[in-house]
């Protein structure tokens, strides 16, 4: 409630502001600050103009190369891809759904596990640390396989039958490494808070629980955001692992499209096409993460 007023008082003093009147003819420092200003803009624009171009080029070249190989009488490569696009997009949407759900589950449980890792009780601290390290250092695919084959296809609670489709199992399988990584992010953030904060709050008679919830964790959220977003981007890219265990996500569908069409020259264009989507989705997250990291680094 008080914050906005103070925040608004600061901008006039911000040296980054370009006051045209004060700009010397050529000053490297100011040019640098101008570049920083640009980097404050949404990162999406930069992708479209520069980085995406390369990927689209790969896609275009491979499509063209495939075109030259395809026989007469068959529909052109771009047209074929266009026909399959709705189906592939549905699969991609499924990937996003899996990533959202795994991230949500992994974050909630992982945050809890992270807090347990800073417990003063050795048994709790040790067991949560072992759990974290176990899932953090296991290959994601192995965890996925475990969940696929260990979990039942349905569970019965009372008279209620809850089906456990493959994609739900995939969500659970992927949320395990997410959980472990979130747990480490929480622990790392808590450890990065200066010990003086613990001392000061302890000397003010806050209980351990109050220290964690009122003083330490509120300072951690900002620090945790960049690595958490980074983890999400990695998870999104890892959702294609679900194709190996038969979930109908974009890679599975791409494979089915290739099989249905029966044209080997489609292979590279289709996969490049999928690659472009993942890039378009994940790259802005990565850029945004870097921006947040810089911003917080300056502040602290």
């Amino acid at each position: 409630m008080f914050r906005p007023r103070n925040k608004r008082q600061i901008p006039p003093l911000n040296p980054k502001h370009r006051l045209a009147v004060l700009l010397p003819a050529c000053n490297d420092e100011l040019h640098a600050s101008a570049a920083e200003l640009n980097s404050d803009q949404p990162p999406v624009r930069r992708i479209r103009s520069v980085h995406l171009l390369g990927l689209i080029l790969v896609f275009g070249v491979s499509a063209f190369a495939a075109e030259t190989q395809s026989g007469a009488g068959q529909p052109s490569i771009p047209k074929t891809i266009l026909i399959w696009t709705p189906l592939l997009l549905k699969g991609f949407g499924f990937n996003i759904l899996i990533s959202f759900m795994s991230m949500a589950i992994g974050t909630v449980i992982g945050a809890g596990l992270g807090v347990l890792q800073i417990s003063l009780l050795p048994p709790i601290r040790l067991s949560s640390r072992v759990l974290t390290q176990f899932f953090r250092n296991s290959p994601w695919l192995v965890l996925l396989f475990y969940c696929m084959f260990m979990l039942p296809f349905e569970i019965t609670i009372g008279g209620l039958r809850i089906p456990f489709p493959d994609w739900i199992k995939a969500v659970i399988g992927l949320s395990l490494p997410v959980m472990a990584n979130v747990s480490e992010i929480v622990r790392g953030a808590v450890n990065s808070i200066p010990s003086g904060q613990w001392e000061a709050s302890e000397s003010l008679a806050f209980t351990r629980r109050q220290q964690i919830w009122l003083i330490i964790l509120p300072q951690c959220y900002k620090r945790m955001l960049p690595p958490w977003m980074n983890l999400y981007a990695i998870l999104t890219m890892a959702t294609v692992l679900a194709s190996i265990v038969g979930v109908e996500e974009v890679m599975t569908l791409a494979g089915q499209v290739l099989a249905a069409d029966g044209r080997p020259e489609l292979l590279v264009p289709i996969y490049s096409f999928v690659l472009v989507w993942f890039f378009v989705y994940c790259y802005p997250i990565a850029r945004w993460t870097i921006r947040l990291e810089r911003k917080f680094a300056v502040k602290s």
Partner: peptide
């Protein structure tokens, strides 16, 4: 009450 060298305000 205690006051520290590094202030340690929240």
């Amino acid at each position: 009450g205690m006051v520290f060298q590094q202030y340690n305000l929240f």
